[in-house]
């Protein structure tokens, strides 16, 4: 079943077509990779899906419901969680409070004790329990990335958008992040991940979508993508 699908999704900034006429779908339970060179429009695409930016045109259906045009909080409550490429957290709160925000507001009508329980579970799930009383500014980068994921998970999403959660991590930490994403998928959450770390993308994604200058230029299994001529020419060949 398709959990998310979109047609004609477009966004321009002035004359720049950041996302242009993208048609896509995401199968429930899969990990979809989103790759493309710097400035290809990947983050903008996430911003359109999650309602951070209004789209110029196009429609997106989430679980069969139209979500294009809704506000971020509505889309979140519909079951889409997201992380930010440049971590966005609540610096005045401890790690626990940051995750608690997701648990408290992610769904309407959650009681404080339910939210506390979710927070504990999520902290344990991503492996942040040891840092729970630390302020966000006092934890290492890898933990900050985990916190981004934890906050989104605490809303209890059906679909999770991950924007470069592996950027800046060392190989062991990348390994851990890969395992975490697989565990998230195994817990029943569909994942779309933007990533420049090719090894991770090729290993854990079921399918990959390639953006270039805002347009979708390829789509397929890791196998297909890594052997596609166009992709190698404009992207994989580059680095």
């Amino acid at each position: 079943m398709k959990i998310l699908e979109g047609k004609g999704v477009s966004k321009s900034f002035g004359g720049l077509k950041a996302v242009s006429d993208v048609e896509f779908y995401v199968e429930e339970g899969e990990i979809l990779g989103l790759i493309g060179p710097n400035g290809a429009g990947k983050t903008t695409f996430f911003n359109l899906l999650s309602g951070a930016l209004p789209m110029d045109s196009g429609t997106v259906l989430f679980g069969g419901q139209k979500i294009s045009g809704l506000k971020p909080n509505q889309i979140c409550r519909a079951g889409m969680g997201r992380t930010f490429q440049a971590a966005k957290n609540f610096p005045g709160m401890a790690v626990y409070g940051n995750v608690m925000m997701g648990a408290l507001f992610g769904k309407p009508g959650r009681s404080a004790s339910e939210a506390e329980q979710i927070t504990d579970e999520v902290l344990d799930f991503v492996g942040l329990t040891e840092y729970k009383d630390k302020m966000v500014t006092d934890i290492p980068l890898s933990a900050q990335k985990q916190l981004e994921v934890a906050r989104a998970l605490a809303t209890r999403p059906k679909l999770l958008l991950l924007d470069e959660v592996m950027a800046g991590l060392n190989p062991t930490e990348v390994e851990d992040a890969m395992k975490l994403i697989l565990r998230i998928r195994d817990s029943g959450i569909t994942v779309i991940m933007i990533e420049h770390v090719m090894r991770a993308i090729m290993t854990i994604c079921d399918r990959i979508l390639v953006l270039h200058h805002g347009a979708k230029i390829a789509e397929g299994t890791p196998q297909e993508i890594s052997t596609s001529k166009t992709v190698i020419e404009i992207y994989l060949g580059e680095s």
Binding site: S50, A52, K71, P72, N73, C76, R77, G81, R82, F84, K88, N89, F90, P91, G92, M93, M100, M101, G102, L104, F105, G106, K107, A112, R151, A152, A154, T155
Partner: peptide, 24 residues
């Protein structure tokens, strides 16, 4: 909860909106 929402807005409005706070 309302107070947490207000602090969330002050500390990072985007993050608050994307965890479901009706910021407006």
């Amino acid at each position: 909860r309302f107070g947490m929402a207000l602090s969330g807005i002050g500390e990072c409005e985007d993050a608050a909106a994307h965890v479901g706070v009706n910021t407006t």
